[in-house]
Design a protein around this nucleic acid. Structure first.
Length: 190
DNA sequence: AACAACCTCAACCGCATCAGA
DNA sequence: GTCTGATGCGGTTGAGGTTGT
């Protein structure tokens, strides 16, 4: 009686993927490509939702995934990018070949957030100065983007957008971050 | 050896955005 | 212009492993 009132249990498998499921998924993607995840799940005969298949592919099965320890260089880059972009893990992952947004998010939450908190505590007295430094940093970046906009004439440029709007991270207008790549390449450090 | 506390990371969930009908 | 399904993203959870007592 009571079970009639309960929501219908999902018909999808949940939890850890088996090697067999991985193999099936990879096979189907090799043939049909990595899109239309619902269809892929059906073709592969997996009792998984499309979302789950996508996640598994993106975070684990995709070729060129780098597994293992994050190097010091990578860590440094993550810190710099996080300073610049906030919790935009997919954008940060885009700058780290072979790393997934999930991996970077996990690494941040388990390692770097603590590190950053510690550093902030240590420099507690200079917190305000830190804020100012951050503002200066943002201003520097803004200035550089403005220069790029004017020198490139914006027509053909990938960085043609309103700089102030862009740096308002509450705005979801961020789409093309080509300039971030270039900024990091040019500056080498923040 | 046994247990608790902590840590890591794969996977899930909900929401936002995109794209096609 | 609107609707709907697909996709992408960030936050969160929980199982399993590790370390400390």
């Amino acid at each position: 009686m009571e079970e009639n009132l309960l929501p219908k249990r999902s018909e999808f498998n949940k939890g850890a993927w088996t090697a067999e499921e991985d193999r099936k998924l990879a096979e189907v993607i090799a043939v049909h490509g990595a899109r239309r995840w619902k269809t892929i799940a059906n073709i592969a005969g997996l009792s998984r939702c499309g979302k789950s298949c996508r996640l598994r592919w993106m975070n684990y099965l995709r070729p060129n995934i780098k597994r293992g320890n994050i190097t010091d260089q990578e860590e440094d880059l993550i810190l710099r990018l996080h300073k610049l972009l906030g919790n935009r893990w997919s954008l940060i992952a885009g700058r780290l070949p072979g790393r997934t947004d999930n991996e970077i998010k996990n690494y941040w939450n388990s390692h770097l957030s603590k590190k950053v908190n510690q550093n902030e505590k240590q420099s507690g007295a200079s917190a305000r100065q830190g804020c100012k430094a951050q503002q200066r940093l943002a201003e520097n970046v803004k200035e550089q983007v403005r220069e790029e906009n004017t020198s490139a004439g914006c027509e053909d440029s990938n960085v043609g957008f309103d700089v102030d709007e862009f740096f308002d991270f509450s705005n979801e207008g961020i789409r093309n971050l080509e300039w971030v790549s270039r900024f990091l390449e040019v500056n080498g450090g923040l």
